[in-house]
Each structure stands twice: as structure tokens, then as C-alpha cells.
């Protein structure tokens, strides 16, 4: 498609703008997610997809009809959807007999250049939907605080990728500054006892007597208990390519500046050799240069010599 895009010339300004919005850029658009319903889903999975959609809104697209595909076996249809809706994150919900126990699983994954990078299958062991918590929620599009707890997130490669994937999925837009009173939503991921617990809380800021408030949490849902199932992780090579930063975005190193332990800035200056001939010494009448004398006489004499 990318190759075709280069050849197809947009006929209107509007379509040109549309194509430009999808081009690769230096600073990228916010990643959006597809929530795809599989060929066979249980009510839990459908509800879970809906709740994830409401967490991810407005950067999400739902595929509500049955999509008979198996991402771990054939990724082409997922890649096609991704290209079509310009999404690089996806959650695929399906439910079948082969996966034991709760028989429910969701797959989360992400793409690079419309090819699947990572896919991690999470089985839902317990799920409490958003609507079961009867309390006030937070406004749509709130940037959540993300907290990962548990040493497991740093121990195995799969968990490390999962942490990166979840961060990528939920972090929202990159912003230069944030309203302190607007930090209302916490997503807490706990890796414990071989499971991953996802809890979503509302932050209540209380007075503490000093500047920083004391906080209390109120669960607002949805809450998930996940178990890790199959994974499809990108090779290290591809993973590295996907992380490549454009040169233009890297901060240029300033030369000749260093800092010491106390943060004092030191600079090194390179001086030209001083011309001592022009050095002004003490002014005296006897040492004064004659301006009208030698300086003018020299060139005029040369000219005279040339003319005849």
C-alpha cells in the first residue's frame, strides 16, 4: 500500500490531507487501537472489548462483527485491518474450547510498519465490567497514571515486553505539561502469583497539611485477572529497528561544555593568538605614529613608479 500511495496522486486537497495524515512522520501521531471481535466470543470477552474501548476512546476503532481469523496462525487479515484503519495496536477477543479453564482469551498486539511486532495472549480469569461499579467515572480521554508492581515485570522477557506493550497501549498522548488536579485515573498492573491483575482506580485528592495531597483510591473498573498464554515476540533485530529514533529528533550534543558533581557548568574557550603589534601601551607624544606620513606615501609612490 505504501508503494501504491506514492504513485496514486490525490485528486483533491482533502484526499491529499488525508494521505498526509497517514504518512510516516518524525513525531508520530498518537497510536490508535483496534478492538476486534473474533469468530466466536463469550459475553465476558465482548464486554471486556467494550470496556477497553471506553478506556481507549477516542483513539480506538471497534470491529463489532464476527471476524473469523486466528492471529497466531495467520496475521494477514490483522495486518490488512491495521492498514485500513491506520491502527498499530490491537486487541483480539475470542473464546473457544481448546483454551482450558475459563475458555476466554484476548490477544493484545502492536504493529510496526503494518506488520505484527508483538502479540501476547492473555486469558481472562476474572472480569468485572465497568458498569458493575456504580460510581462516578472520569472524563473521556484522561491521561492515566500507570503503575507496574511486581518484580516479574523485569525478570522474564515476556513480561518485559508485556509491560512495554501495556504502556504503549494505555499511555495516551505525549504532552508537555499536565494539569495537576486532572490526574484522576490510575491503572495499576500487579504481577503476582503467576497472574497479572489490572485494576483501575479513581484518584481522590485529600488535604494532608502540606503542599502534596494525600490520595485515596476508589475502584471504578473494569478489573481483570489475566493469565499469560501464548506469545509471539518480535525478533531482537526487528525490535531494534522499530525503536530507531530519527536523527533529526536526537538532541545535538553541545561541544566544550561539561558539568561537575555540583552541577556547575564549565566551558572551554579557544582563543586566537593575540596580535601584540596592536597592543596599546602608554601613550606618549614621542611614540605617536604619524598618520599622514609613511602610510599614504608608500602606495602613491608605487603608482608613480608604474605609470611611466
Amino acid at each position: 500500500m505504501t508503494q501504491l500511495d506514492a504513485v496514486v496522486k490525490p485528486k483533491t486537497k482533502r484526499s491529499k490531507r488525508f494521505l498526509q495524515s497517514r504518512e510516516p512522520k518524525l513525531t508520530e501521531n498518537e497510536k490508535s487501537a483496534m478492538l476486534i471481535k473474533g469468530g466466536n466470543t463469550s459475553e465476558t470477552v465482548t464486554q471486556a472489548l467494550k470496556d477497553l474501548y471506553s478506556l481507549k476512546k477516542p483513539n480506538a476503532v471497534t470491529y463489532k462483527k464476527k471476524n473469523i481469523t486466528r492471529p497466531f496462525e495467520d496475521q494477514t487479515s490483522i495486518e490488512f485491518f491495521s492498514k485500513k484503519s491506520d491502527c498499530s495496536l490491537f486487541v483480539f477477543g475470542s473464546h473457544n474450547k481448546k483454551r482450558p479453564h475459563n475458555l476466554v482469551f484476548a490477544i493484545a498486539g502492536r504493529m510496526f510498519d503494518f506488520h505484527v511486532l508483538d502479540m501476547i495472549e492473555l486469558g481472562i480469569e476474572k472480569f468485572v465490567p465497568l458498569k458493575d461499579f456504580k460510581n462516578s467515572k472520569f472524563p473521556e480521554g484522561t491521561k492515566p497514571l500507570l503503575v507496574f508492581a511486581g518484580e516479574a515485570f523485569d525478570l522474564s522477557n515476556e513480561h518485559r515486553r508485556l509491560k512495554s506493550l501495556l504502556t504503549d497501549f494505555f499511555r495516551g498522548p505525549t504532552v508537555p505539561c499536565v494539569r495537576l488536579a486532572g490526574l484522576e485515573h490510575v491503572l495499576h498492573f500487579t504481577a503476582l502469583d503467576g497472574k497479572i491483575f489490572l485494576r483501575s482506580y479513581k484518584v481522590l485528592l485529600k488535604k494532608s497539611g502540606c503542599r502534596t495531597p494525600r490520595i485515596e483510591l476508589e475502584e471504578i473498573g473494569p478489573s481483570f485477572d489475566f493469565v499469560l498464554r501464548r506469545t509471539h515476540l518480535a525478533s531482537d533485530d526487528l525490535y531494534k529497528t522499530a525503536h530507531k529514533q530519527p536523527k533529526a529528533l536526537k538532541a545535538k550534543k553541545k561541544k566544550n561544555i561539561s558539568h561537575d558533581a555540583f552541577g556547575t557548568r564549565f566551558g572551554r574557550l579557544h582563543m586566537q593568538k593575540q596580535d601584540l603589534g596592536k597592543l596599546q601601551t602608554r601613550k606618549m607624544k614621542g611614540l605617536r605614529k604619524r598618520r599622514g606620513g609613511d602610510a599614504e606615501r608608500g602606495p602613491s609612490a608605487a603608482k608613480k613608479a608604474r605609470t611611466p
Partner: peptide
């Protein structure tokens, strides 16, 4: 560091 969505232009 998170992976990019599309390759560097």
C-alpha cells in the same frame, strides 16, 4: 523507549 508506529521517513 517505545517502538515507532511507522519507519522513519
Amino acid at each position: 523507549r517505545l517502538p515507532r508506529e511507522k519507519p522513519v521517513p
